[in-house]
């Protein structure tokens, strides 16, 4: 008797969405580290070669970035070249979907035990601040306010728009380069 059951369409769509979002956020983290001084300063405290992963348990979609030094990140498309230093693991696809579709703030997801941290907690706090900073740049203010604990009151619209444009341009360029290379 066949035991494999069909996945509902909604689940497939969520899986695809989460997969795409991880690819976008991974590339955007590399981009924001090249664009924003605040992110660069935060990242500078991480050891060079530091590998950060976000993924869906047990072996679902994920993103992997490396701190290559001087506050800059590099997005890795393939498997980790060595053991990962910090991993934030969503317990289920649904939990990743809630966060990546901005229905649940990252901080609330931590409070709700949606994710496990494997690695140094202080680095996880730092990476959460970096992710929050990225989100306030790349998301419309109304959406960003749902994604982060506090929208920075000192972030003016021109700075937000210029930074967002630069990040999206870098992400798009990275996608094109990836497509050409494969």
């Amino acid at each position: 008797m066949a035991t494999k059951h069909l996945r509902p369409l909604g689940s497939k769509a969520k899986r695809l969405y989460v997969n795409i979002m991880f690819q976008v956020i991974g590339r955007a983290l590399q981009a924001v580290s090249e664009v924003d001084d605040e992110v660069c300063n935060e990242a500078r405290s991480l050891p060079t070669g530091f590998l950060f992963q976000m993924m869906v348990m047990p072996k679902g979609a994920g993103l992997l970035i490396e701190h290559v030094g001087d506050g800059r990140f590099k997005y890795h498309r393939k498997e980790a070249p060595r053991p990962i230093d910090l991993s934030i693991k969503f317990k289920h696809l649904e939990h990743a979907f809630l966060v990546l579709s901005f229905q649940e703030k990252t901080s609330v997801a931590f409070a709700n035990d949606r994710m496990l941290i494997d690695g140094d907690i202080s680095y996880a706090v730092r990476m959460t601040r970096i992710l929050n900073r990225l989100e306030v740049f790349i998301l419309p203010k109304l959406v960003a306010e749902r994604a982060v604990k506090a929208y920075p009151h000192n972030l003016q619209l021109p700075e937000k728009l210029i930074s967002a444009a630069r990040i999206y341009l870098k992400v798009a360029t990275h996608f094109i380069k990836t497509a050409r290379a494969s």
Partner: peptide
């Protein structure tokens, strides 16, 4: 204190 894990659960950023 800014890098302490407990700060993530503080209700205000």
């Amino acid at each position: 204190a800014l890098d302490d894990g407990a700060i993530m659960f503080n209700p205000k950023e």
